[in-house]
């Protein structure tokens, strides 16, 4: 069974003439992590909220775990758990209060709720702050409370709308590990993020949305192939002839004093020698998701990046 199956899903917010989401058909396999990428305002949250029964579609259909998310919202709501974008914990409540009470509200008995709360607080390193009111916690810890609430719940499908925003690199890895645990137990996940490394590490399947439409979809492997060249070489800018570099492929100014050449494996040797000869530092790597993202949805002309 599919975790999410949307057909021509469209959302036009009240009073808006253009659709925030337009004709989006997405299939999310169960026990997989599906990631939505896209620029600010692309429509990711709009999609997530329609699937999570928080927002009505204008047109099209969406089913979640086999139930129609509009007509059978009640059934869907038994089976899902969410981290809303930019949610905030209640100021006076502690991490323990949030997770423990939420689990009970979702129907767990006290004993199980206690075990699960301990478990998730431990995993996310919130245990030492378990009794501190949220207003006295840092921004990242507050975010982790929301993630803990969602992950502690026994559900089949998890919606994570930018779950690791504001988290330090160690905390992010803890959240990733918890997400992977969830998947290992057979759970499905719909994730949105602006962190390409996060998407690369977690996703089984990715859709890139731009201005309300899906512009690319596939595994990381599939998406990497969108850029014609498979290799990128970053080389210090000093005194390099851009036109000469362009003969190897496309060239982008990273803005950090280096030029990025998208090229083929066959050019690695030549370009490396060129850099070595001039004593310029350089790195060679495969094309990343970040590159694909910028290639697909980055407006390079106005961004002034293309060298």
């Amino acid at each position: 069974m599919l975790a999410i199956d949307s057909e021509r899903l469209t959302k036009r917010y009240k009073g808006s003439s253009i659709a925030a989401l337009n004709d989006v058909s997405i299939k999310v396999e169960s026990a997989r992590i599906f990631t939505l990428l896209g620029r600010n305002g692309a429509g990711k949250t709009t999609f997530v909220r329609m699937a999570a029964t928080q927002l009505m579609p204008t047109f099209g259909s969406i089913s979640v775990l086999g139930y129609d998310a509009v007509r059978q919202a009640k059934q869907v709501r038994q089976l899902i758990s969410v981290v809303p974008q930019e949610g905030r914990p209640l100021r006076a409540l502690t991490p323990w209060d949030h997770v423990y009470n939420w689990l009970q509200i979702r129907g767990e008995d006290k004993k199980i709720a206690k075990e699960k709360t301990e478990d998730i607080l431990q995993k996310l390193e919130l245990m030492q702050f378990r009794d501190r009111p949220a207003m006295n916690l840092s921004g990242g810890m507050k975010q982790k409370i929301l993630v803990a609430m969602a992950l502690a719940v026994d559900a089949k499908l998890l919606f994570l709308d930018e779950p690791t925003i504001g988290l330090d690199p160690v905390s992010r890895r803890q959240v990733w590990a918890a997400i992977k645990d969830w998947k290992a137990k057979g759970g499905s996940i719909l994730l949105t993020t602006h962190y390409m490394d996060e998407a690369e590490i977690l996703s089984d399947q990715i859709a890139i949305i731009d201005k309300g439409s899906v512009v690319a979809e596939g595994t990381i492997h599939d998406l990497r192939k969108i850029i014609p060249q498979n290799t990128r070489i970053d080389v210090a800018k000093d005194g390099l002839d851009i036109d000469m570099l362009k003969s190897y492929g496309s060239v982008v100014d990273t803005g950090a004093g280096t030029l990025r050449v998208f090229t083929f494996e066959s050019s690695i040797r030549e370009l490396s020698e060129l850099a070595l000869k001039r004593n310029l530092p350089f790195t060679v790597s495969p094309v990343t998701l970040d590159d694909v993202f910028v290639y697909l949805v980055g407006n390079l002309e106005s961004g002034g990046q293309r060298a």
């Binding site: 909220r49 999570a52 029964t53 928080q54 009640k74 709501r77 038994q78 899902i80 758990s81 969410v82 809303p84 974008q85 930019e86 949610g87 905030r88 914990p89 209640l90 939420w102 509200i105 979702r106 129907g107 929301l146 609430m149 969602a150 919606f159």
Partner: peptide, 14 residues
């Protein structure tokens, strides 16, 4: 609007 808590409740059996 401020806490988005309602969004969490909507997407739940409550």
């Amino acid at each position: 609007t401020e806490y988005k808590i309602q969004d969490v409740f909507v997407a739940s059996p409550v």
